[in-house]
Structure formats: C-alpha cells, structure tokens
Design a protein around this nucleic acid. Structure first.
Lengths: 209, 209
DNA sequence: GGGAACATACCGACCAGTCGGTATGGGGTC
DNA sequence: GACCCCATACCGACTGGTCGGTATGTTCCC
C-alpha cells in the first residue's frame, strides 16, 4: 500500500491547488479547476480531501513543507556572518522572481486575505506558516543584531516581520502591474535599510550613493 | 430629477461594497450580501449596476474619490518642509488604525489580489487607483529629495512604491494576526528608513537608538 | 476477496442576472 | 388646478447555470 504512486494523485492535487489558488484566489477556484489542472477526477479529489476547505488546510501544510525545503537548501545560509546570510536572503528573494506571477507569489498571503474573516482555521494555518518562516529569518536577525547593533531598541522579530511585509506588499503591486519589477526595487530599498540598521561597516554611507 | 435622495441607494450600495468586499473578498461576496448590508433589494442593485463586475469597477472609483478626499483633508499636509509632510503621512497612517480590520485595510489591494489574472479591467482600475495615490506621495518625496538627498541614486517614485508596499504587506499580516500591531511596528521601521534615506539632520543617528 | 484508489453520474443549494411590475415626481397641455 | 405622459427608482419572484458534495460503481494491488 505504501508505494509512491499511491500518493501521486494527492500530491498532484496539492501542487495544482498551489498554482490555481495563487492565480485565481481561493473563492474563485473551483474543485474542478484543481482537478483538471491536476489531471484527476472529482471522485479522486473527494477521496483524498473531505472538502474544499480541507484541501486548503492541506495545501498550507504542503506549501510549508515545500518552501521550508526550498529555503533551507538555498545557498544564502553558507556565510558565517549572520548579516551576510540575511542580506543573502534578500538577494535570493530577488533572484527567484522568475516565471509567471503565480510561480513566485506567496500562497499564504493570498489565502489569508480572502479567508481571515470567514475561515478561522485557514487563517490560523496561514498565520502559523508565515510566522514559522519569519522565525527562521529572525534567528539570523537576532545573531546579526548581537554582532552589529546590540543596543538597538528594535526587536529582531519586528525586523523579520518587516522583511516579510515588504515582500507581501511587493507581491500586491506585482499583481497590479503584472511585473516583478516593483519587487526588485523594493528589495533594493530593503537591503539598504537592513545595512543602515546594522551600521554595516562595509557600506555605511551607502544610503545616499 | 436631480434631488439628492436619488442617488442615495447607489451610494449605500457602494459603501456597503467597500465594507463587505474588504471583509470577505470579492469572489466570496454575493450581490445579496451587498444588498442586505446596504438595506436595498436586488432589483435596485441591478438598476444601478450592469453586473457584479460593474459594481467592482464603480467601487474602485468610489474608493478613489473617498480616499482622495480623506487624505487631502488630513493635517499632515500643513508643514512647509516636504520631509515633515512625508513623515507626517507615515504617522497619520498609524493614527488611523482604528476599528475593525475592514475599516482600515485597502480595498484595491484586496481586490487586485483576487482579480489580477481573471478580471483585466478590475486589475487595471486597482492599478490606476494605487498609482494615483503613490503619485501624490511621490511629489513630497521628490521635494524632500531635492532638499536633503539631491544626489541619491534611488528614484522618488520607487520610494513611493516602497511606502505603499510596506502598508499593503502590513495589512496582510494584520489580517493573519487579527491585529493592527504589525502595521504599527512596520511604520516605525519605515519612518526610520525614510529618515536615514534623507540623512535627516534632526535625527541622524536614530537608526540604532 | 477485500480494501484503497480512482471514475462517472447525479443531487441540491446557491447565486448572478432577468423580468414584469409598482411608486413617484416632474413637465407639458388645456 | 386637473389631467396625462413618461422617465427614473425600486421591488421581489423566478430562472438557468454552476459548483460543492454524494452515491455508486470499477479497477487494481496485496
């Protein structure tokens, strides 16, 4: 029973869900949309998921698993200097802006906007997923702070949230403008802010040059 | 024929649309939701609007008109120093975070996320509305740049987009966390960034204190 | 042969949009 | 002022299609 093909349909459905929901939004996505994108039938869908909402929940878990693997395998973790890792993260986020919009935007950000008032469990799942990613990030912020700005009054966590907020907001404008250009420019601003925040010796007066 | 009461229902429908769409998202909002919120009937709705999509378009125009009046009447325009006006804007955005989430989040940001791939005209309307607001903002950025950072390589417009991206992203997290607290913290970071960006003499070393 | 994986036909609720109708009020005519 | 005409505003039952979910197989693997 535990052969790989068993979960093939389920994985296909989850992958399809990530794509379709990011493109059309959750409410506008029909179960049949996901099925046809995945190349399976509705019977299969409801064999694996109790309901559409259940799929959404599973999709957030799937998303978390995917992104966690993706980011932990990324090369920006290599530097021993935590600030370099942090700036590497920002640079990395710029480097992965390829393909169509649904390929690089965030499922959780899209999902939570539509469901925060009507689907408490989905909202909570999105919150959990985003917070977990931020917690990862915050670790490097914390370490960099200890090194470069130990007395600063801002919290490492708030910087983590700020970074993610810039990204989420950038995606909104990417969608409005149908282009990742705004994301890139915003990442440049973000990088500059982080550098000044840590009084990074290598590029201290970079703000106005 | 031109009595004020004539357009009363239409205005009520538009006001209701702003609330309901921001709370439930566009696709999940039914025409009857809006009607009952506005206290009018479906017949009236389709007398004033050709379709649900037509309402969305009118709602963006209504939103633009409302917000333009709201922001142009705000006190942050008073200072003669453009940087003070800019920082005043950021402070003002923090001051208006009252009431429920749908009361202070942005209709256009919510709308465009759901419609960018499926409703080209709504997407374009959202883009137009957000760009217009940013253009206003950019004027002050431009003036402040001339005064305080004339040789900086970043464009005033990109700063305008950055400010709005921070806000839009903050709203995503406000929805995920059911609280405007993240918005406030992000505005603090944003203020600090703007100050360093303009090398504001009054608070130059504020970044790490 | 028994259960998990998948397929097909179908149901019922819901919802955007329609349609025939009523109410109101302004303007022209005598 | 009495009358009619007609446009605009508004009402709510109805319809046709869509979509989440179910019921009933069928296939295939252990």
């Amino acid at each position: 029973m535990a052969c790989a093909a068993q979960h093939d349909s389920k994985t296909k459905l989850l992958d399809a869900a990530l794509q379709v929901i990011r493109a059309k939004g959750y409410a506008a996505t029909t179960v049949e949309d996901i099925c046809s994108q995945a190349g399976v039938t509705k019977g299969s869908f409801f064999h694996h998921f109790k309901s559409k909402d259940d799929l959404a929940l599973s999709a957030t878990a799937h998303w978390e698993a995917m992104t966690e693997g993706f980011f932990s395998a990324a090369p920006y973790h290599e530097p021993s200097d935590p600030l370099d890792r942090l700036l590497g993260y920002v640079k990395f986020r710029g480097a992965i802006l390829a393909g169509e919009l649904p390929d690089y935007t965030c499922l959780l950000g899209t999902l939570v906007q539509e469901t925060y008032a009507t689907h408490p469990d989905i909202r909570a799942a999105c919150d959990r997923g985003m917070s977990r990613h931020i917690a990862e990030l915050t670790r490097d912020v914390e370490a960099a702070k200890k090194l470069y700005a130990p007395k600063a009054r801002w919290s490492a966590e708030s910087v983590g949230y700020f970074i993610q907020s810039v990204l989420q907001g950038s995606f909104v404008f990417a969608k409005a403008k149908q282009s990742p250009e705004v994301v890139r420019e915003n990442l440049t601003h973000l990088k500059r802010y982080l550098e000044t925040l840590f009084s990074h010796p290598r590029k201290l007066k970079g703000a106005n040059s």
